[in-house]
Design a protein around this nucleic acid. Sequence first.
DNA 1: GCTATGCGTATACGACATAAACTTTCCAAA
DNA 2: TTTGGAAAGTTTATGTCGTATACGCATAGC
Lengths: 238, 238
Amino acid sequence: MGEGETNAFPLIWTQRQQPRRRGLDREQITAAAIRVADEAGLDGLTMKAVAARLGPYSPMALYRHVHSKEGLFDLMLDAATAEIPLPGEPGDDWRRDLRTLALETRRMTSRHPWFAVLVHARPPAGPHMMRRLEFMLTVLVRRGATVGDAMTYAVLIDRHVLGSALQESEEARLERRHGLDDDARLYAAIATLRELAAADGGLPHLTEWLTHPAGPTPEERFVIGLDFVLDGIAARLA
Amino acid sequence: MGEGETNAFPLIWTQRQQPRRRGLDREQITAAAIRVADEAGLDGLTMKAVAARLGPYSPMALYRHVHSKEGLFDLMLDAATAEIPLPGEPGDDWRRDLRTLALETRRMTSRHPWFAVLVHARPPAGPHMMRRLEFMLTVLVRRGATVGDAMTYAVLIDRHVLGSALQESEEARLERRHGLDDDARLYAAIATLRELAAADGGLPHLTEWLTHPAGPTPEERFVIGLDFVLDGIAARLA
DNA sequence: GCTATGCGTATACGACATAAACTTTCCAAA
DNA sequence: TTTGGAAAGTTTATGTCGTATACGCATAGC
């Protein structure tokens, strides 16, 4: 006590950044972890895999620098957030600012599908995550929203962005896990679903859709939903 | 082949329902698993815990009936979905139908916080999940939407409902894992975040909010976002 | 009563995160 | 140049998990 380290819980952001001498550091480890997760998915993100990616290291080597896997998650999330371009100042069109940020966030999550899964498991306390949120709040407050309302709107936008990302990423994970990257097998899996729906007897629309999946692409869906949210915010800002 | 069991992947719905003679069955196991998950969270949902909840059983006993933990997930998800009241037929107010369904779904997820986490990890192929989706499609198609558009709108509604549930449930999980159900510790954790934000120097709105968290309650937020989606759908149906 | 079926168990295996104790490396001061 | 000690990395070990396999036993149908 008296050290300023009386944390209610272990966020890596409240822990000492080592002075850096030689060997590994947080940055390298984070970058390696991100590469592993991008390539092998969250299932493949083990301490052993990250260590191996860094060279001839043992899994335990990482603990000197990140103290737990969750700490590594914090670092990964913030590093990925740092990839999202963030204007220094809001422009004069709030809607464009928020729309662009949402689209850029989506671009990031499509590079890093694990992001949407992890982000819900840790508090958004990294510096880049906080700065991104501050940007959204600033844009909205300048348009007359209270901070409380601005937080609500920001949360709703992120819910859509990250919800979309999560759904698409988990779908991809499922397909990968069961080898459905092969077209024939994917078709067979859909056929199984269609048969289940048809067997029920009372599911005409669902059966029809499974027979001829139609409608907007996932990307178009995302934009439609994003505009729903932005329209709603606009109506309340007015 | 020739058996109808050439599954591209193992959904429990395509597997034989045992004739039931004695001992355990899927229904009991599912109910026990749901109780365990409700009480101990997903982290506490182990095969061992479920077996123990059923009586003096070994974890391996479950495998006779569910063949894998993921199969158990499928059963849990569908059983929880079955708790959502579903009208036999749509009424004459599409918006009311969808709104009610969304609110009832939310009620279910607040009883079963694990739902929103698991639902993304498995295809929604259970009978109750399919019937619920069919209901949404029917409501929308009757109002003139194509099946493809109806699917989009249904997905957007669920994205909001489940996204909200996920965020709130993971927040609760985090708080539980770190003993923040104690008010003093929770306050300390928030103070830590505020200090981090204040230390950055460039986060006035976020710092302000962390000092005096204001704005709508989570429940109000949910309704605001739900109406954004419903308004958006209404505009496109017209 | 006999036998086949199928239910539950015991045992075992291979991942995984990570605690603790150790060894090695390298810098800084004497 | 020597030396003390901290920092970096490894080894070993522990406990938990899902689950494959092989087995014993009770029961249901004859």
